[in-house]
Amino acid sequence: MNLYQSLGYLVFGSRLRRMSEAFLTEINRIYQGKGIDFDASWFPVFYLLSKNDSLSIKELSEQTGVSHPAASQLITNLKSRELVETTVSTDDGRKQLVQFTDKGLALLTQILPVWDAITISMTDLADSDPKIAEILPALSALEDNFKVFNLSGKVIAKLEVDNITN
């Protein structure tokens, strides 16, 4: 058992971050190995746009769970690479709609088989160990419960109770 494993919940966020970084590094290595100029951090936008003709930056922000400025920054990055473009909504002149450019659609065509292969490979990994197969349902349960659990409030209350009794 390594240090991180032995510290349990004290380093839970750090372990999730390390695992995420390792996973995304592997995914980017796949794209690079196939000669595809794509970054895993673009995935949510590409996926959502692959399912929709266009989306507003607000919709992208809400569906990906990132702040509006973060979504806007990502869209600006993708626009500078000429992978997406924005147009003003005919319904609401304040709303910018994001859609693929021809170059973005061509890139999407290249990455769709990679997404399929990732899904199959990760399913094979999950099938190799029952504990791994539990990770996605457990992560979903944690995300749902963490929203309402109020960890900071509970820790502070615990500290106050312990302080009174000590």
Rank of each mutant, 00 (worst) to 15 (best):
N150Y: 11
S89F: 05
A22Y: 04
A70W: 08
L105A: 02
T87S: 15
A141V: 04
S121K: 10
S54I: 01
H68C: 00
G104F: 08
T76D: 13
D144W: 05
D124Q: 14
Q5I: 02
M122L: 09
P44Q: 08
V45G: 09
A157S: 12
I36K: 12
S89M: 03
Q63C: 01
T119D: 05
S72N: 15
L55Q: 15
T86N: 00
I164F: 08
R15N: 02
S140Q: 10
P113L: 04
S152L: 15
E59S: 13
E26M: 10
L139N: 01
L7Q: 13
I120G: 08
T123M: 03
R17K: 06
L78W: 12
S140H: 11
L107F: 15
D92I: 03
T86L: 01
V45D: 12
Y9R: 12
N150C: 10
I132G: 02
E160G: 05
R15W: 00
R29Q: 12
L16N: 09
F23H: 03
E62Q: 12
D39I: 11
I27F: 13
L24S: 12
I132C: 04
V148R: 07
E143D: 14
S61G: 04
T25F: 11
K51V: 07
N145E: 14
D39R: 10
I118G: 13
A106R: 12
L60V: 15
N163Q: 13
S20W: 02
S67Y: 09
L24A: 11
I27Q: 11
L159M: 07
R18S: 05
L60W: 15
A133W: 03
E82V: 00
S61Q: 08
D162W: 03
A70T: 08
E21W: 02
E160C: 09
P69V: 00
D124M: 09
L74K: 14
A40W: 15
L60D: 13
M122K: 00
R17T: 01
L55E: 14
K51P: 05
G153S: 06
S72A: 15
T119G: 09
R81G: 07
L125Q: 02
I156T: 05
G35Y: 03
K58M: 08
V155I: 15
V45E: 08
E26S: 12
F146T: 01
K131I: 13
T165L: 11
W42D: 08
D124T: 14
F149S: 13
L97W: 02
Y9N: 11
F149I: 13
H68D: 00
I156K: 05
A22T: 04
T76Q: 10
F146Q: 01
F43V: 09
V11D: 07
I57C: 00
I132D: 04
F46Y: 12
L60G: 15
M122S: 03
F12G: 07
T101Q: 01
L139C: 01
V84E: 00
S54P: 03
I118H: 11
A157C: 03
I30H: 15
